[in-house]
């Protein structure tokens, strides 16, 4: 296995406040890696820093052998990193199809039709609603759309920020099933989640973040049975 993305001693500051403290982690090709942690631990900051928002104050973010920490967001996006942002962030007045087409911005529309069919295969619900305005869909459908939109740029690495946010448990289950399907096509996924139970069951490896530091790391199963993790994130039973 080759390393796709690596954080090396990354610090991030928001003014005087340090949000990330010497974070190091790796994502190998073909893996599902999850980062779990409580509110305000710095998970979203870590994900956004890949796109340079905010810029890291020290350290390196190596993606396929290149330091991308000072690159612009569109450079990163057009080199195989796609993100489904926190809170879905779909375009409410655009139809499902148009939302998907917006996902092709980094690579151009050459494969749009073909990839869209592929997405409709993965997410049959989106096919039913392809001409519907995105704002009229349910939260789960919107989340599917956000993931599909990210996949439209043919990424090497899919970054997901809390896909379970604000969704009913049964929908969360569906979303994670879909992520499993996506992963089985060979996609590398880096998943940031608060829903530790689902995330750790899905992931090959996991990192636990507390107050801007990586506290623990291990395979998904190891962390799932780890008493400390169970105490903090899984309700202690």
């Amino acid at each position: 296995m080759t390393t796709l993305m690596e954080f090396k001693n990354v610090d991030v500051h928001y003014g005087p406040i340090q949000a990330l403290k010497g974070v190091s982690l790796t994502v190998e090709e073909g893996e599902i890696v999850t980062l779990i942690g409580a509110n305000g631990a710095g998970k979203s900051t870590l994900l956004m820093s890949i796109f340079g928002q905010p810029r890291i104050s020290s350290g390196e973010i190596i993606y396929r052998g290149e330091d991308i920490s000072q690159k612009s967001a569109h450079y990163v996006a057009s080199h195989g990193l796609a993100q489904s942002p926190e809170g879905r962030r779909i375009f409410p007045s655009m139809s499902v199809e148009e939302n998907l087409l917006m996902g092709t911005i980094p690579i151009g529309m050459d494969h749009a039709e073909e990839d869209m069919q592929h997405m409709f295969g993965l997410f049959p619900r989106l096919l039913e609603r392809r001409n519907q305005r995105a704002s009229t869909m349910s939260g789960g459908e919107q989340q599917m759309l956000a993931i599909a939109r990210a996949l439209m740029s043919r990424p090497k690495l899919l970054l997901l920020d809390e896909p379970s946010l604000g969704l009913a448990p049964i929908i969360v289950k569906q979303i994670f099933q879909i992520l499993k399907d996506v992963a089985s096509t060979g996609m590398t996924i880096f998943l940031v989640e608060q829903n530790a139970n689902h995330a750790l069951k899905l992931a090959n490896r996991g990192y636990v973040m507390v107050n801007g530091e990586i506290r623990m790391t291990g395979t998904g199963e190891e962390l799932l049975v780890n008493p400390e993790v169970r105490e903090a994130y899984l309700g202690g039973h």
Partner: peptide, 18 residues
């Protein structure tokens, strides 16, 4: 399209690498 997308959601646009 990019103008309209920007009007609708700027953060989404940035995350898409616009």
């Amino acid at each position: 399209r990019a103008w309209e997308a920007l009007r609708e959601d700027e953060i989404a646009c940035r995350s898409l690498g616009l």
